[in-house]
Each structure stands twice: as structure tokens, then as C-alpha cells.
Design a protein around this nucleic acid. Structure first.
Lengths: 193, 193
DNA sequence: TCAGTTCCTTGACTAAAGTTAGGAAAAGCG
DNA sequence: CGCTTTTCCTAACTTTAGTCAAGGAACTGA
């Protein structure tokens, strides 16, 4: 169960057995049911999430409509702006499937850093990486059409198509549900020729 | 000259005089002329940049066209994916104006961390913050039309309009130069009524 | 089982961005 | 200074996304 996590971490920095034990002992793993809200708009949040198994979704409520902006699945990390800034959240974070999460709060983080100083270096490297990756995704998004974005998603995260309703994927791709529907038809027709 | 930097850092963590001195002594400040490339496509990069004064631009060459994706101005931070990943860069980073930068390489960073351990915490906090902010910008980008994005840019970074050619701003906004031209006309007409 | 959602698609229409082409003003350079 | 390049705008046309309306399929809960 934890092995996925430690394999992932090893990509940044291999951990010793005692170090792994620190994480396990702190009982940071948490099972969360589908439909559970981790944060709602207006609430304060003090946790960071690492998805071991399952799927989280972030969305905003704008003019009574849900605007989905991200999905976090296996081995992805979510540091809500609300947690980082200690300000009320402007978005919702909800559990899309029954999930297994590593939940670390500002408090537990501090404890881990004391017992295991290298963990701060690990967190720094991870943040730097995620920042650069996020910027690269943003860059790619700007330079591609809705259809190209759909095709890329199909290529990089095909699982999402099965796991998530299409109208949520549409707003994730920055378009309306009707447009996504038409894009899918267009793409299928091209493939058939 | 360095005071802008230290004022900025104080927002995360006030530094002591000796700590400030470490940074100044390491002579990490660098003047860079307009037109200078910090990284080209295919090159390796091993530096992080903090803009004290001036402006940097990142762009990709796609089908012989420059696709600008970001501008870094006063008090903004740039950690190129190439530096983070130690892989050849897929983008260009160029100096748009004569600029004053704080340049930190992987080597100098290590030295600073040793002489001044709190610096690593500072870097972690900064990365976490920038990541959450970048994600929020990305979210907003997805949920707004080209016109809304233009108006927001006008609101949040009006200086860019003067500092940078419009066709570069267009691709930064994820649209073509012709579209930006039309949007500007539309907006002006609305304002005139 | 049935009623009420939610989800997905389609069609007709509108609005806006992409494409292509051209031209004028401004800036850079010999 | 003239020349070239860059920058910016315009226009006509094409393509595609947004909007509004509707209907059917799939799922949900009493």
C-alpha cells in the first residue's frame, strides 16, 4: 500500500528504512470516500494531499456552474492555494472515487521536518519540480487548440476518459461540453478515413 | 539596489543582516543586456533567475514561429524546467530589456544552503507559493475568454502593454495577433459608449 | 418500478477566433 | 539619410467554439 509512495519518492531521493518508518508511524495515510469534500469554497484548509490511489477534482462555482480545473490521480500532489496562503478557499476539492491519500498538515509537516530533516529538502525538490511542470503544461495549453488539447489528454491520461464525466473534462480542457462532444465526433470521423 | 530583493524576501521570512550579507557577498547579482539569451532550445541550463529589475521572456519555436508563454518582470522568479530536470531546454529565455537579475546556480545554491540553512526553507516556501499561484492562474485562464484574459492583463500587469510588442502578448494570451487587435478595438468601442 | 436526475448528443444559429493577404507606420541599421 | 525589418492594423473569408433548445440514454433513489 505504501510502496507506491516510496517508489515515487525514490525518484527524488531514496529513503532509509527508519525514514520510511517515520512516515508510516505518523499515520498520515487516510481513506476517503467518493463524494467527500476536502475543502469547500470559503473554508480554510491546512492540508497538503498526495494521491496514492483514487482521484480528486478541483472546481470553482461561477454563475452557478461548476468549472473543473484539475484532476489529481495516482502519484499526484495537491497543495491548495488556500493551505499555502492561509486564506479562505475560492475552490472546492472533492473526492471523485474512493481514494487513499497521504494527508499532511502544516503541523505534521513541522514534526516530520524535525524528526527527519531531509524531508524538507525532499519537499523543496518536489515543489520546484511540480512548479516547472505546471508551467510547462500551462505553456502547452496556451499553444494548442481545443482539439489538440483533447488529443493530448487522450494520449497522456487516457484513464481520465473512463473515470470522469465528459462535461467535467470539457471545462478541464477550457471548453463547453457541447464543443467537446463535437470534437470527439470530428476526431472519430478523421480516424475512420 | 538589493533592497527590493530583501523587501520581497521579508514577505516570506525576514532575514538578519549577516544573512543578507551572505547573499551580497556571493555576488549573485548580474546585469544582463537586452537581447541576451539566458537559454536556447537544446541547451542545458543550470541557473535559477530572480528579476530585480527588467524583463525576461520565455518562448518556444513551433513551425518557425515564436510562441511566447511568459514574461518575468520585477520581483518574479523563474526556475526553468531545463534547470530543474537537468534536461535540454525546449524553450528560449531571452532578456527583453536591460535587466538586473539575481542568478543562482545549483552550485551556489548548495553553498548558500550550507552557510545559511534557513535559505532552504525560504526556497521551499517560495516554490510552494509560486506553484499554488501558477495553478490558480492556469485555472483562471481556462475559465475565461480571450477578451476577459486581455482585460485582466490590462488590470494586473498594465506595464506589459508598454514594454512588450503586442504580437508577443497575443501568444501569451493564447491567441493570434489579429485577434488581439480586434479585441482591443472591441474594448475601445465599448468604453466609448 | 417509476420519476427525476444527470449525462451526452444533436441541430440551428451567433459570435469570435483562425487564416490569408496586404499595407502603412515606426524602429533599427548600414 | 535611404533601406530593411519589425510592428501593428485592416479586410475578406473560413473554421470553430459558444448559445439555446431539445431529446434520448443511463443512472439514482424512493
Amino acid at each position: 500500500m505504501e510502496s507506491e509512495l516510496f517508489d515515487f519518492i525514490a525518484g527524488y531521493m531514496p529513503l532509509t528504512e527508519p525514514e520510511k518508518q517515520v512516515i508510516v508511524d505518523m499515520a498520515l495515510f487516510k481513506r476517503v470516500d467518493k463524494g467527500t469534500f476536502l475543502v469547500r469554497e470559503g473554508e480554510l484548509s491546512n492540508a497538503y494531499y498526495f494521491v496514492v490511489r483514487g482521484c480528486l477534482r478541483t472546481y470553482y462555482m461561477i454563475d452557478g456552474e461548476e468549472k473543473t480545473t484539475a484532476f489529481y490521480t495516482e502519484l499526484q500532489n495537491l497543495a491548495p492555494l488556500s493551505t499555502v496562503n492561509k486564506t479562505p478557499s475560492d475552490q472546492y476539492i472533492v473526492c471523485v472515487e474512493d481514494s487513499l491519500l497521504l494527508v499532511s498538515t502544516l503541523d505534521t509537516e513541522q514534526l516530520v521536518f524535525e524528526r527527519f530533516p531531509r524531508f524538507e529538502t525532499l519537499c523543496r525538490l518536489l515543489s520546484e519540480n511540480l512548479l516547472a511542470q505546471n508551467q510547462a503544461s500551462f505553456d502547452q495549453f496556451k499553444n494548442s487548440s481545443p482539439e489538440q488539447r483533447y488529443l493530448r489528454l487522450l494520449d497522456t491520461r487516457p484513464d481520465l476518459m473512463q473515470r470522469v464525466p465528459l462535461h467535467q473534462l470539457a471545462s478541464y480542457l477550457g471548453i463547453k461540453a457541447e464543443s467537446l462532444s463535437r470534437i470527439r465526433r470530428r476526431v472519430q470521423q478523421k480516424a475512420r478515413t
